[in-house]
Design a protein around this nucleic acid. Sequence first.
DNA 1: TTATTTAGTTATCAAAACATAACTAAAGGA
DNA 2: TCCTTTAGTTATGTTTTGATAACTAAATAA
Lengths: 142, 142
Amino acid sequence: MYKKKLFEKFISFTASVHTTTHNITKGAKPSNISQVQYKILELVSISQPMTPSEINDCLNMSMPNTSRELRLLSEKKLIEKTLDPDDRRKQYIGLSPEGKDLITDAFSIIESRFSDRIQHLSENELQEVDQALDFLQKKLFQ
Amino acid sequence: MYKKKLFEKFISFTASVHTTTHNITKGAKPSNISQVQYKILELVSISQPMTPSEINDCLNMSMPNTSRELRLLSEKKLIEKTLDPDDRRKQYIGLSPEGKDLITDAFSIIESRFSDRIQHLSENELQEVDQALDFLQKKLFQ
DNA sequence: TTATTTAGTTATCAAAACATAACTAAAGGA
DNA sequence: TCCTTTAGTTATGTTTTGATAACTAAATAA
């Protein structure tokens, strides 16, 4: 059946994405932060600012663990917490200047690997890649 | 610049894929195996048979760790090892019947979640999804 | 035949990640 | 007011994962 095939394609696709992300990212993260800590910084850099709960949900963690990792990042001066004036239970997490620098450095390594990967593609193919990323993110990966 | 935008889209896309995979997969893995062990079974189920070295490379592990996880999976009777008759250093890893059952069960949970996710898409959009998956896997995720 | 390389294993240790319980403090409702 | 819910924290223990060194055994090249 058609949907079965599509499902298999989906499984194989996500496995490839995982492998590729791992390869393209490896070595870009500085060794003084852990993998989850890097993921948090990356996430926050994409959609700043976020609350701990939102980070928790996006990265599928548990609040105690999220809280601890945020504390560690905060102790390393890589993020900054600000309280919501309207609801003082909430806080917003943003990157500190040092955190921004860290992500900038990491992204520049990753971006150069990404460039290598797309360098042989034609203008047309690049546009198709662009559209496919948009389309899948919207329709399948929300 | 155009490529910069594409890169940002790539980062955001891969983050979404990770979140979605995690959500769609959560609870599908039985609790008696670990995450990497599940990943190994999933991988082997996609491209059976594989050598330990190949598994090692795909999942970006180190040989000692791959070897340990394969031993544990083997002890749980979820995989089977067969020696290459032409090169007796090599071995091929395949799923045992129990391993196949495990993956079948997990996939049926994941597949039903996948169905929920694509159910509101039209025939046309489904075809576009199919093509986009093919295209990106080939051009970007190798 | 004697290196050398390849494929995989065993042992051990450390770090990262995960899970649970018990907690504070603010907000919102009855 | 009191109760409940929401947002986040602290403490603690366990499991998973990762890293390194030292190893076997087969294949291959010199």
